[in-house]
Computed example of a mutant assay.
Amino acid sequence: MSIIGVGIDVAEIERFAASLERTPALAERLFVERELLLPSGERRGVASLAARFAAKEAVAKALGAPAGLLWTDAEVWVEASGQPRLRVRGSVAARAAELGVRAWHVSLSHDAGVASAVVIAEG
C-alpha cells in the first residue's frame, strides 16, 4: 500500500455556524441525513458539522481537488468505538477509483473555535 494523497482543512466554527444560519438549505447540500444526526437521533452540533465539512474539503484535496465532486458523495460516519470513517460514492468514488484509492484514514478535531480534519487516501 502507498499514500496516494493527503488533505487537511480547517473551518472556523463561528463562521460556519453563521453560514448555516444565513442559508438554511446549506446543511442539506453539504451533508447526507445521517451526518446531520447523532446516533441518538438528536441534531448534531455545529462544531461537529464543521469538522465534517473540513473532512470533505480534505477529501477533495487528497484527490487533487478536481472539479465536479459533490459534497454528499463523501460521508463521514463514526464507528461505535468513536473512530471516524469515510464512505464515498458517486463523483468521489469515481475519482478515488481513477487514482487507485483502496482505503481512507480520517481524523477530526475541534477546539478553540476551530474544526479541523486530516484525510489520507491510501492505494
Rank of each mutant, 00 (worst) to 15 (best):
R95S: 06
A103Y: 09
R52E: 05
G7N: 11
L30N: 07
G123Q: 13
A97F: 08
A17Y: 09
A96H: 08
E42W: 01
A17H: 10
A80P: 13
E35C: 02
E21F: 09
G45P: 06
A97V: 06
S40L: 01
A27P: 11
A103F: 09
D9M: 00
S48F: 07
A94K: 11
R85E: 15
A97K: 12
L108S: 02
S109E: 14
A25Y: 14
L70Q: 05
V46I: 06
A50M: 14
S81Q: 08
A112I: 03
L70S: 07
L36W: 10
A67H: 10
R44S: 10
E75C: 08
E75Y: 05
I8M: 05
M1L: 08
V32G: 10
A112G: 14
T23P: 04
G82Q: 00
S19I: 00
V119F: 00
D73W: 01
R43S: 14
E98V: 03
R87L: 12
S107W: 04
L30P: 12
L20I: 06
H110W: 10
S48K: 06
E21I: 06
A96V: 02
E21P: 09
A51M: 03
I8G: 02
D9K: 00
G5M: 07
R44I: 06
A80G: 11
R52A: 04
F16S: 06
V76C: 12
G68C: 05
E79K: 03
T23D: 09
E75D: 14
S107M: 01
D111Q: 14
L38E: 15
A47F: 05
D9L: 00
A25G: 13
V46P: 04
E21M: 07
A11V: 12
L26H: 08
A51I: 03
S40P: 07
L26S: 12
L69K: 09
V101I: 04
A74M: 03
A58V: 02
V76E: 13
R89A: 15
L30K: 05
E14A: 15
